[in-house]
Amino acid sequence: MPGIVIIDYGFGNVRSVQRVFARIGREATASADPAAIANADLAVLPGVGAFKDAIAALRSTGMDVALTRRAATKRPILGICLGMQLLASRSLEDGVHQGLDLIPGAVEPIPAAQHGLRLPHIGWNEVLDEGADAIFSGLELNRDFYFVHSYHFVCADSRHVAAKCSYGIDFCCAVRNDNIFGLQFHPEKSQDNGRAVLTNILRIVEHNATATA
């Protein structure tokens, strides 16, 4: 079984993501090989840093093609933080840059200043209950996750909004297009809640794999 593969392209804390999967009893391997990414049961795209550099790194290594092929064949992808933003059609961070375009939409700056708020949006914030996808089921005492970002994903199709969070505006903090998932917060740094969401995503991915097998 190819299992869970974390895309190692120099823009994410691969080690932390590997650790969180280990904590929920799942082995995840890091790889920079487009073939391994194409064959994985779940491809995880982490990411911190600048959008334009990250998308350039994916393109120069052929990992953009591997991800696009996965999406075309409905194979699961999970983007985390910048990794979620890379799923968008384009980003307005430091110019206009084309994304992977796996979930239609644009990445735009959070309009914090007009609400008297500071940027980046750093810290624990709650995922709103209303309209939240099944990946958020089973959270117990709170719905707080660790966020750190200055841009947000604006979905072209509201059906792809898997959850919202509030910081001046209600912004999309999780996206889902069938088997493609994106989380703006860091599940690997969100303790029990982060592990719960990843467990839910794995359950959905495996259920779908069984259903289509």
């Binding site: 911190v48 840093g49 600048a50 980046p120 750093i122 750190v148 970002h149 200055s150």
Partner: peptide, 8 residues
């Protein structure tokens, strides 16, 4: 900030 992102 250019390499790691300002949040780091």
């Amino acid at each position: 900030a250019a390499v790691l992102g300002r949040q780091c």
